[in-house]
């Protein structure tokens, strides 16, 4: 696991056909052992395809991968990218925090009480299946074009996902554990706090992760639709001046940031919340 990775990766993408059999064997062994090998291969294939498509070019508005990459580095170095993220993260974090507290709370109540389920579950089922994006223009009427409106856009997309997952998490708690708690005369409060919530935690957290993914969609929608700010502003501005490499770089960076955030959350989930799925 600790062998130097880079020579093999270069070999794999550069001269796959020419290598001697021992290199091929080492490579094959390496591919079996390391998942990251395939990550690199898979990234390399897409980036190469992108580069070629950009050089053809398939469209005047399609920069090559290298142009986009250098635009990204340029934006990162000249100090436009970081402030843009700081602005984008404000409504995102606020919206996700509100959705998490409200959503997990409501979801748990719906899971525990039949009356709350009857009253609220259908509303959130509709809201989750429905294209909430249609309502984004509406919030601007009431809350203008500031932070509140954007936060609300995030909440509108993230909240239904979190509520419904929390609700399902509570409803799918292991009934045998609940029986166990009853058989030892646990009170309803003990049942909720010592059995139901701990047992539901992994699914609650997974719901939160899905909510954050929806929140990213929401914040981008808000920044493109309400007023351009943050990353949305970078995208809109560079598009308007036909600076396509920079525009692509901004889009790629937000997708990458969201992917890394979600991957980190998934790691936390597997590492700390699901002891039974943890390897070793």
């Amino acid at each position: 696991m600790h062998m130097a990775a880079s020579p093999h990766k270069v070999g794999a993408t550069g001269g796959a056909g020419s290598g001697s059999s021992s290199i091929v064997e080492t490579l094959a062994e390496f591919a079996r052992r390391r998942k990251s090998f395939w990550v690199v291969v898979s990234l390399a294939i897409l980036f190469t395809a992108w580069e070629i498509a950009g050089r053809v070019p398939i469209s005047f508005a399609f920069p090559t991968f290298l142009e986009t990459l250098s635009a990204l580095i340029e934006m990162a170095l000249d100090g436009t990218l970081l402030p843009a993220y700081l602005i984008t993260f404000q409504p995102l974090l606020l919206g996700v925090a509100v959705s998490a507290v409200l959503g997990i709370g409501l979801g748990i109540v719906m899971g525990l009480s039949d009356k709350a389920e009857w009253l609220l579950a259908p509303v959130f089922i509709v809201l989750q299946a429905a294209p909430m994006a249609a309502l984004v223009p509406l919030v601007t009427f009431v809350y203008g074009i500031g932070l509140v409106a954007k936060t609300l856009a995030v909440i509108m997309l993230a909240l239904p996902v979190i509520v419904l997952n929390s609700y399902k998490a509570v409803r799918h708690v292991n009934p045998s554990l609940v029986d166990m708690c009853r058989s030892f005369q646990g009170t309803r409060m003990q049942q909720i706090f010592k059995i139901i919530i701990p047992d539901a935690t992994p699914v609650l957290f997974a719901g939160l992760r899905l909510g954050i993914a929806a929140g990213f969609i929401g914040v981008m929608l808000a920044e493109l639709l309400i007023t351009p700010t943050g990353i949305g502003d970078l995208i809109t501005y560079h598009r308007s001046v036909a600076n396509y490499a920079h525009m692509y770089a901004a889009v790629a960076s937000i997708i990458a940031v969201s992917t890394l955030t979600l991957a980190a959350l998934q790691y936390v989930e597997l590492r700390f919340l699901r002891p039974e799925k943890r390897r070793k």
Binding site: V219, L224, T236, T259
Partner: peptide, 19 residues
């Protein structure tokens, strides 16, 4: 080869791609 990209795009903020 495709696993990475599919898993990435399934939860990516695709609204940013529309522009």
């Amino acid at each position: 080869i495709f696993g990475l990209w599919v898993n990435m795009f399934v939860s990516a903020p695709l609204s940013a791609l529309v522009p």
